[in-house]
């Protein structure tokens, strides 16, 4: 039984492959639902009479960022119809979940354990103490670069309407490390704004100004982390790029 999702690396590739998913009910916005199990709870959504499985609760290392009751979620990805149902839901794989910022108090469905619903696999992290390791392993840092140093590009992805959050350091630590290792002279940061066309035809665009806000926030983070000798070039593309999650991003170029 394949455990979904499987690694941080998969998350990255999943996110950027989302646009290639088969046409179908996605993307959509819906209330998330907690379906408890005898081990850890599942997160599911219901849409047009069908149930979809998003993922399970694990720990902070998980690439799947579970939703929040009290908020709707934007669900992007593709339905994997070859996979057996999990927690009664069709599996969305790859899946990208964005917690919508505004409150939706009607999203308050916590379903207790149903004897007919159980996880078909052992969760990597039980609801109590772990086995002494995180549920998912992070990729090893790359080997230290050797001169002559090359200009290198990095991408920081975002949830819909998202800004810097707990996951951002995973993407920014390699940037910081490379800038330190190569004694970066110049840091170019460009923010982007995304838009998503929902399956029902609704166009969902991030608010204007978010591209610049993202770029400036990343610049402040790198400055605050000690990259204070480089020249910063901060720019933004505020035209809402229609597509998948990969349009919501900041691109960073480190110039040694």
């Amino acid at each position: 039984m394949r455990l979904l999702p499987v690694s941080a690396a998969v998350l990255a590739s999943a996110s950027f492959a989302a646009q290639a998913a088969e046409p179908g009910p996605l993307p959509f916005v819906a209330c998330p639902i907690v379906q408890d199990t005898p081990t850890v709870p599942c997160w599911i959504v219901e849409r047009d009479g069908e149930t979809y499985y998003l993922g399970i609760q694990s720990d902070v290392s998980a690439p799947f960022n579970p939703p929040s009751l009290g908020h709707k979620v934007l669900v992007e990805g593709g339905v994997d119809r070859s996979a057996p149902r999990i927690c009664g839901g069709l599996v969305i794989d790859p899946v990208t979940v964005s917690i919508m910022p505004e409150a939706s108090p009607e999203c308050d469905d916590l379903r207790m354990v149903n004897p007919h619903i159980s996880l078909p696999f052992e969760p990597p992290r039980p609801p109590g103490p772990s086995m002494g390791r995180l549920a998912f392993t992070y990729p090893d840092p790359p080997a230290a670069p050797q001169p002559p140093f090359e200009t290198k590009s990095f991408t920081v992805p975002y949830e819909f309407e998202g800004m810097v959050g707990f996951k951002t350091p995973r993407f920014l630590n390699p940037v910081l490390l490379y800038a330190q290792q190569t004694n970066a002279r110049r840091v170019e940061i460009r923010g982007y704004r995304g838009a998503t066309k929902l399956a029902d035809g609704t166009l969902l665009a991030e608010h204007e100004g978010i591209a610049r806000a993202r770029a400036e926030e990343i610049a402040a983070m790198l400055l605050g982390a000690g990259i204070d000798q480089a020249t910063y070039v901060v720019s933004a593309d505020e035209s809402p790029a229609l597509g998948g999650p990969d349009n919501r991003r900041v691109e960073i170029r480190i110039v040694p």
């Binding site: 907690v34 408890d36 709870p41 609760q57 902070v60 579970p66």
Partner: peptide, 11 residues
């Protein structure tokens, strides 16, 4: 809001 979900069943 740091990757565990809301709510989270923990200890």
């Amino acid at each position: 809001n740091v990757g565990l979900g809301n709510p989270v069943k923990r200890t």
